[in-house]
Structures are given as structure tokens and as C-alpha cells.
Design a protein around this nucleic acid. Structure first.
Lengths: 166, 166
DNA sequence: CAATATCCTACTAAATTAGTCAGGAATTAT
DNA sequence: ATAATTCCTGACTAATTTAGTAGGATATTG
């Protein structure tokens, strides 16, 4: 009973996007460096996230990825499903043909577990999780350690523009 | 997010023991044939189940395995833990050293998920599951199809002895 | 054009899972 | 006693999945 790194990486990366959402697109190179995930591997994951319409890619310099919806509307179950296949612990993919074309004795158990698992994860939005006490502080601390100055600069620019506009 | 066959096999096999609990020990050869699991593989699983004190082996002819405790006192989480390692979706085995010796941003999420997962599974006893409507009937049907006459005979003998004793 | 990014496909290495094989040890029936 | 039955153990292997590489194409900005 475990979660592959694919799912964990996916959620972690999405949280990164959510945290830096106001500072424009985040590059995979950035995430790769900070979270210690290989760039190419991240590209594969984001390809899936993009196909699931959870993120949007922006090409070219200054580009990167951003959430395609507000963090309030993205839940953990979606992310894991997109990246790590289904959240499902049955053998038969819920089809009930687990043993000789019939439902095996434990089929109902796995079905129920799968459902509960999914709804637990579906009940947690990115926003909810990012807004937990301490998370933002922890993230900023991390960014400093990792020398994520680009993001800091961008974030400052965005604030300036907002001031101009008002 | 998935369950390996180890865990599934383990639970399925334990259910088999629970269902045939009144008919004396169940041989692995029997389970192997009926559930379509290789005998040697079952032996490995049962070695773990035995070490976790969930089953007892009875050697010699007429031997097999039986539950070491009443089915009411055995829950699904124990079985999976015994056979398939921990029920845990964190990267760091709950130690909180997931990223550079610090807790990663998603650590709390995985911790909470692991806990909920475990307590869900721990809340289901073998007995509860075996006593679900339809399960016993399904099992008897299966036994007939699989020609599990040995067990049927034994079950009859047990009943006779009980009658004599009373 | 040059630099920066995403995007895409195919390949490879490592780890895990699932299983096999070969034998030994305990128990019971004959 | 001995043969049959069954658990028990460890080492080995094949298949699958996971994780990661490599290399290049495409789009965008300055």
C-alpha cells in the first residue's frame, strides 16, 4: 500500500505552482532545482498534468507553467489520478471480473476502500493545503535557501504593476 | 496509489481461513488451487503472516493453517502490514526527513492520509467482512465449483463429533 | 538570430513484484 | 518404521513498473 513518487512529485510540484501563483509562470528548471527532481522527469509529469487540464504551459523566455484553474478548484485526487493513473486498489479496475470473470470475495472491500481513498483526497484542495499555517513561511524559507531570486524579483514586479494600476 | 497483489492475496487467503474456520486447518495447496495463487508464493506470504502471529501452521497430514485468533480480533490493516510492509504513503516512513533532512511541504498531507488509510482498514475485522450478506453463499458456491470436497467432508465430521459430544 | 522555455519520443537503469526451485523438518496414518 | 503429507526456508529468476536520460523539435522573447 504505497504511493509512487510520481504521485508525490505531482502534488509537490502543483503545490509549488499554487504557492507562486501570483508571480507568473514557474519554470520546470526552477522546480527541478528546488525539489531535486530531474527536469526530464518533471516534463513527463507535466505533460500528463497538461493533458488533464490542470496546468497550462507558456513557452518561450519568461514562460513556464501555471495552474489552469484557481487553486480552490483543484483537488489532490485529480492530481494523483492524472499523474499516477487511478486512485484504485482493486485488481480488476472496478470491473468485478477479478476471479474467473466473477467478483472475487474481497471485491467489495477494495471497492469501498478505493472510494473512501478517493473522496478523502478529493476533499482536499490545493488552496486548502497551501493556506495551512506555516506552509507559506516554510516555502519562502526554502526559496531563499535555494536562491530563487527570479521568482522573488517577479513577485516584486507584479506588486509594482498592481500599485500602478490602482 | 495501488495495492500490490501481496496485500490482496494476503487478505483473500485470510478470508479463506476465516470462512473455513470451523472445519480445521486449511492447506495452502487448497488455497493455491482455488484462488489461483502459486503454492510457493503462498508459503512466503504465510511465513510473514505466521511471524506476525496472525496464523498458526499445523504440520503433517491433515495439517494446514488456521487463524491464531478469532476472526473478530483480526483486522485488515494488520494483514496488509504483515504481508505488504507498512500501510504508509509518506516517502520518509513518517520520519519527517523527506527533503534535505527537513519535512517536505507535503509531509503533513501524506501523514494524514496514511493515518486515515490505516484506521479505515483497522476498522474492518475479518469477521465483519466474512459475515457480510452473500459472502458465505458465494464461498460455498466456489468450493463446489473447485471440488473442495476435503473441506466439505471435514466440516461434516466436525458436526458429527459435536453431536456426539452433546 | 540567440537565448529560453516548453514539448515530444525513444531509450535505459534500477527497483520491486511475482514467482520458481530445491530441499529440509515435523507430524500422522498405515 | 516408513511413507505420505504438510509446513518451512532460502536462494535464485523472470517480468513488470518506476524512475530517470538523451536528444531534438517547436514556440516566444529581446
Amino acid at each position: 500500500m504505497r504511493l509512487s513518487t510520481k504521485g508525490r512529485y505531482g502534488v509537490t510540484a502543483m503545490m509549488d505552482l499554487a504557492i507562486h501563483d501570483n508571480a507568473g509562470p514557474v519554470t520546470l528548471a526552477d522546480i527541478s532545482q528546488c525539489q531535486g527532481i530531474s527536469l526530464s522527469y518533471l516534463e513527463q509529469l507535466f505533460s500528463k498534468l497538461r493533458k488533464a487540464k490542470l496546468v497550462e504551459g507558456v513557452r518561450g523566455p519568461g514562460g513556464g507553467y501555471r495552474l489552469s484553474r484557481p487553486a480552490e478548484d483543484i483537488n489532490i485526487a485529480e492530481i494523483i489520478s492524472a499523474v499516477d493513473e487511478k486512485v484504485d486498489v482493486t485488481k480488476c479496475n472496478q470491473e468485478g471480473n477479478c476471479q474467473d470473470g466473477m467478483r472475487c470475495l474481497t471485491h467489495d472491500l477494495w471497492m469501498e476502500l478505493s472510494e473512501r481513498l478517493y473522496s478523502f483526497l478529493a476533499g482536499i484542495t490545493l488552496a486548502q493545503f497551501v493556506n495551512r499555517p506555516g506552509i507559506h513561511e516554510l516555502a519562502i524559507q526554502r526559496d531563499k535557501i535555494n536562491g530563487r531570486f527570479i521568482l522573488a524579483r517577479r513577485q516584486a514586479e507584479v506588486l509594482q504593476q498592481q500599485r500602478k494600476a490602482s
